[in-house]
Design a protein around this nucleic acid. Sequence first.
DNA 1: AAGTGGTCTAGACCACAAC
DNA 2: TTGTGGTCTAGACCACTTT
Lengths: 241, 241
Amino acid sequence: MEQYGDKHIPLYKRVEHHILNTIEEGHLVPGDLIPSEPQLAEQLNVSQGTVKKAIENLVNEKRLFRHQGKGTYVSRIDFNNSLFRFFSYGDETGKGARIRKTVQSRELKQGPAAICQTLGKPADSELLYIRRFGYIQEEPILVEHCWWCPDVVPGLEQDSVHIPDLMYALVVEKYGVPVVRAEETLTAEIADPATASMLGIAENSPVVVLIRHAYTRNNKMIEYRKTVGRADKFSYKTEIR
Amino acid sequence: MEQYGDKHIPLYKRVEHHILNTIEEGHLVPGDLIPSEPQLAEQLNVSQGTVKKAIENLVNEKRLFRHQGKGTYVSRIDFNNSLFRFFSYGDETGKGARIRKTVQSRELKQGPAAICQTLGKPADSELLYIRRFGYIQEEPILVEHCWWCPDVVPGLEQDSVHIPDLMYALVVEKYGVPVVRAEETLTAEIADPATASMLGIAENSPVVVLIRHAYTRNNKMIEYRKTVGRADKFSYKTEIR
DNA sequence: AAGTGGTCTAGACCACAAC
DNA sequence: TTGTGGTCTAGACCACTTT
């Protein structure tokens, strides 16, 4: 366990890095088991307590999760932490109602230059565009614009491929591309006429705008998503201590 | 350490509860030292390792913080976690610019019924109302409406009492009332005419609305605050894993 | 029965801060 | 020097899961 440079970095930190590295190098994917505590301890020539501490820290950071009697697994990305979760009926107490989605449009077309660049493509590249509506009960609540790198998800533009509500499940299953990380940015705007009519609200109503950048392994961004939702159906609640 | 009921609750959990209880009972206030690991271990008749684990957990929850060589302290509330932090210039990368505040109005007056009730007062009670503007550089960015229980902060309505940007520091220092917890709820609305003119924006511009409930010990709410800010100067960023 | 993680202990040694 | 927290080890025992 000296190969990580023997500065003043604690052993358990080096064990954490070792575990994350073996995941990052692709030897382990979300859902996989990692070696057991005794195995890691012997492999790295440290005590089991040190391995335990390293794993506990990674569990706290949600990089791993554990099941007694079974083992330690690499985390799947948890979109329960998405700001989406805070779209709800009225201003209920933080309860996120189920949002059902329907595909309105899917096509290969030239992407806006800014989005192409964000995705690491030349400006004016052809991208896969998917538009979906989100409903709570039967009421439209949000419009979602997704832009994908078409080489990552070939054939997804065909109507024969069913797109489930949780699109990332399809992508990992059909194309073997897991979404391992995402960044979300929230702002508020005024509904433009097109959006207003889609959501059945007055023009000049406030809307909440959520931009998401979704990444797969190696820090490669694979989707740009803009979600526009009715502000009156959104509330985000936090506790400070 | 059996006095917490000998169900199947792990020892370290019971130690956590014991520490939190001694804080809650008022024997310890934010900033105070708690007993050292060896002291707690002997006092509760458990091993030092168990005390360490309990304290580590509370540190992770931000209830305590530690300084090597000094000791373990009860946390002060950290308003760096406030959603406020995400008001910024343009859509910079999560950097929160400094917000300077000026008092526009302070008076005792009858509070709106809903706010009186939230504060646990009879409807139409007299409350202390304080309105402040928030600036980034010289540009007004938000308007803040604060409603306080006047019995908690007597005399605060007098102009001779200077109100600092961080109002809670004054309240704890002058009245001995610490803010130990707060809840914040975020939504978006359209600026009403009064707000629009105060912020120097067009009517019908989008604004971000932040409601805060601030609590002191014993779960007593002492302030209701509504902050209305320019949406174009707000962005909230998260990472999902 | 064997293997996994979960809890708890006891003790060594180090780093930092105060006196 | 003394007391604090920070790291690391070794080992016992328990609870859960699979074979």
